[in-house]
Design a binder for these strands. Sequence first.
DNA 1: TTTGTCAGTGAAAACGTTTGCGCTGTACCT
DNA 2: AGGTACAGCGCAAACGTTTTCACTGACAAA
Lengths: 337, 337
Amino acid sequence: MSNSQITIKDIAKALNVSVSTVSRALNDSPDLSGATKQQVQEYARQHHYKPNLLALSMKKRESKTIGVIVPQIIHHFFSSVLEGMMDVAEKEGFNVLLFRSRDSFEKEQHSVQQLISSQVCGVLTSIAKETTHYEHFQELVDNNIPVVFFDRICVDIPSNRVVIDDYAGALAATEYLIKTGCHRIAFFCSPLNLEISKNRRGGYLDALSKHGIPVDKDLIKICDNYDEAIPVATEMLQSENRPDAFFAVNDETALGILHATKHLHFKIPEEVSICGFTDGFAAIASDPQLTTVGQSGQDVGRSAMELLVEKIRHKGDQPLIKNKIIKTKLIVRETTR
Amino acid sequence: MSNSQITIKDIAKALNVSVSTVSRALNDSPDLSGATKQQVQEYARQHHYKPNLLALSMKKRESKTIGVIVPQIIHHFFSSVLEGMMDVAEKEGFNVLLFRSRDSFEKEQHSVQQLISSQVCGVLTSIAKETTHYEHFQELVDNNIPVVFFDRICVDIPSNRVVIDDYAGALAATEYLIKTGCHRIAFFCSPLNLEISKNRRGGYLDALSKHGIPVDKDLIKICDNYDEAIPVATEMLQSENRPDAFFAVNDETALGILHATKHLHFKIPEEVSICGFTDGFAAIASDPQLTTVGQSGQDVGRSAMELLVEKIRHKGDQPLIKNKIIKTKLIVRETTR
DNA sequence: TTTGTCAGTGAAAACGTTTGCGCTGTACCT
DNA sequence: AGGTACAGCGCAAACGTTTTCACTGACAAA
């Protein structure tokens, strides 16, 4: 809010013309005399006139604003996604209203309400870990607001999606571990209500079965962060039938495992191989450097925003559902043979 | 934008009352009969009525929205700051409009314009590396929009500021290096138009002089990222009068130095000590783990948002300038003796 | 009965824009 | 001269709210 912002009315009064004339002058309308136009534009420039976006949005019934909900911001993947989104938002002339769910269902729900209230013309989101039902997202659809889910998608809502090729990434990573001689491969993943968990586990399991390795349920843990990974990995490594490789759902977890492994003085990668998922900065900074499945958050963000903008532009057209799959790339470094 | 959102008018028509009545009912006004109120509220609930924030903001002339401009999003410090800001924005009921300058003056300027146009009721920002003049920020002040600068502040504009205690942090780190026996301490920093650079350099220089160590200009480099740090550090380490310690303006740079040092097979910390600034996740993931000056981005973000909210609430009061200094903490790990 | 009070509601203006329509006056055509 | 055409501009409605003011009717006090 501002007390002193100059409006179209002020200009009209000062120049002794009507508001419509000012409006037309500023929009460079063809049915205005050059002189009047110039005069108005000049005055506006000098007085730093800026259109009131709220009024404009009201009038035009579209806000040129896109809502984004992420579970967390300090997080290599999500901040990369945001960065990518900003790239195209900027290019396409949209502003971004940011919300954060902290993986809480309630906050996610509230954010959606705010976004609808704010008249955003589209929403990009990755669902909270807690979320298991989706009425709030359905409301977006009911209100005719395009939604694109990214990464953690929602299969119940008809909408566009951008996902990492989790299955292929996990498959490739697991196969690589197998090919380099590992056969007791532990898998650390997030809760299974998330699609990404299901898909990565699918890749892991299929890689095992493809190579005739039986699944050992004791090797699969729900564990997806650095701190928890340390004790869990430590315990596994101390068991008599210890794993000879770990595949983790993200880099933090993998680095927790790495920490535990080094601490127990296992040789990496000779005795224990480790592979992460994401390829954040820490994967390079660690020693040994982490082998990981690279996923470009920026590509995800860019694609999601592009899809959304396209959907906004062609509203009312065919409501076809377009999905985009972002390829991963196995980045072999020093924690695997 | 949405075609189908239900408005107060729709409710009025459906219930055969006036819009004023509906408005009052929804705001729980005391001078309405209980029956009418209940009826309206019930109808609104059933039809998922949501107030149009744009209209509301227009009317009330305040948008309950805060603008944030950061140079970059994929960046441990800035994403931490954002996270902290969201904490208090959420608590205080403000929405956040996010912009990113990519350290470009032009983009920063454009973002400010958009924020003014968007009628935000306050702005939080950390200036772009390129920025050397500040008319655009002055415009915010002229429009009576409170601004709080954080981290990379702007001294020319009368406004609140939240800064890391860069000077003290750098002083403490340098002194620690000196006390542990280093006397040729290199310093890698960002361009000097940024206050943080000046202050950190100030701390570095004062620590040296305090301990009677002469300043060697060859030991001071403008270099603030991983990739550039590697060749620069390599060259320094190969010189005959090599440094025995490095102090870098951020962790990425420090880790670049670490990489170069390990590559040349210097013993860390016996032959070369390294200290960073930030304490991101990579500082723990690296091996040896990085000694660094911990700065809590979240605290910075929280404080900045708190200051801003306070300023918004007490608009028109004394325009006193409050600064907040966030303490740093030297976190000694394995890259120093 | 007359007056006053007050609970309950509606009408209308306002926030800053855009835009369809209509009004004026000049210039051109016949 | 009479008519047409159109350039140039203003009026007013509309977007969804809130809020001031005024109105109605019921009921109590006189």
